[in-house]
């Protein structure tokens, strides 16, 4: 199961929604809660829940076209992990961004992996992904990891260096490329790169709202150095 919620640079959301379109996944479920704002999103004239789940026989993908409010994020992530466990998913993968201050100077963003257990960490390393040895993760990826561990579901986070508060389709493409390589799910990222500027124009509003939620959840703690002597 792949999770792509709005977060740093909208990396996870852009990558996951592109994958859904490319693999022609069908909408199979949605999430509703009084904790979420009273919003529906219209696509091709029909209403959809902003937080919804797509899938086929091999892959389930969760996206949100709504910046999930901080008070709701715990509930949302717990429900997603519980739902995934009930559907007996093999593992939960969340894609996202790692904010870097000098992003515009980076030609090809680096991608890092985080895994819920040593076995998965070894697998990720073996596949050539750098791991985050020390650091903080804040937000949806942190909770998906935390709840997956408590539910004994394997979890991996794939995080690409990205802009903090600007939509970053390039980082999304690189994260998706790594996801595709590691989990052997074929996807062509060329269209995503071509549509980069269009995506940046369209993503301004959700980025702005996501930025407000990131401030509330103290996302900047990801820049901090942890202390464990």
């Amino acid at each position: 199961m792949l999770i792509g919620l709005p977060d740093v640079g909208l990396v996870g959301l852009i990558a996951t929604s592109y994958l859904i379109t490319e693999l022609k996944l069908e909408e199979i479920a949605y999430m509703d809660s009084d904790l979420l704002p009273p919003v529906i999103v219209l696509h091709r004239g029909l209403p959809h829940a902003p937080l919804r789940i797509y899938g086929n026989q091999n892959l389930i993908a969760v996206i949100s076209e709504l910046a999930v409010p901080v008070p709701a994020i715990y509930f949302v992530m717990r429900e997603i992990v519980d739902w995934g466990q009930a559907k007996k998913v093999k593992r939960i993968v969340s894609m996202g961004g790692i904010p870097v201050e000098s992003r515009q100077a980076i030609m090809e963003p680096q991608v890092f992996g985080v895994a819920s257990n040593q076995e998965l960490l070894d697998m990720v390393t073996k596949k050539g992904l750098s791991v985050i040895n020390e650091g903080y993760i804040v937000g949806p990826q942190a909770l998906s990891m935390r709840y997956s561990i408590s539910k004994k579901v394997s979890a991996v986070a794939i995080l690409a260096q990205s802009f903090y508060n600007y939509p970053d389709p390039e980082a999304a493409a690189i994260a998706l490329k790594e996801f595709s390589r590691i989990f052997e799910i074929k996807v062509d990222i060329s269209k995503l790169l071509e549509k980069g500027e269009e995506i940046r124009l369209k993503a301004r509003d959700i980025m702005k709202r996501t930025q407000q939620e990131m401030k509330r959840m103290k996302k900047s703690q990801e820049y901090d150095l942890p202390l464990y002597v």
């Binding site: 515009q104 802009f163 508060n165 600007y166 939509p167 980069g196 500027e197 269009e198 940046r200 124009l201 301004r204 980025m207 702005k208």
Partner: peptide, 22 residues
Amino acid sequence: LHALSNVSITPRQVIITADLPN
């Protein structure tokens, strides 16, 4: 169209960045 922008203030400089695609 309104562009996303960010202002940071250091002891010596004011740095503004803006996302200006297309």
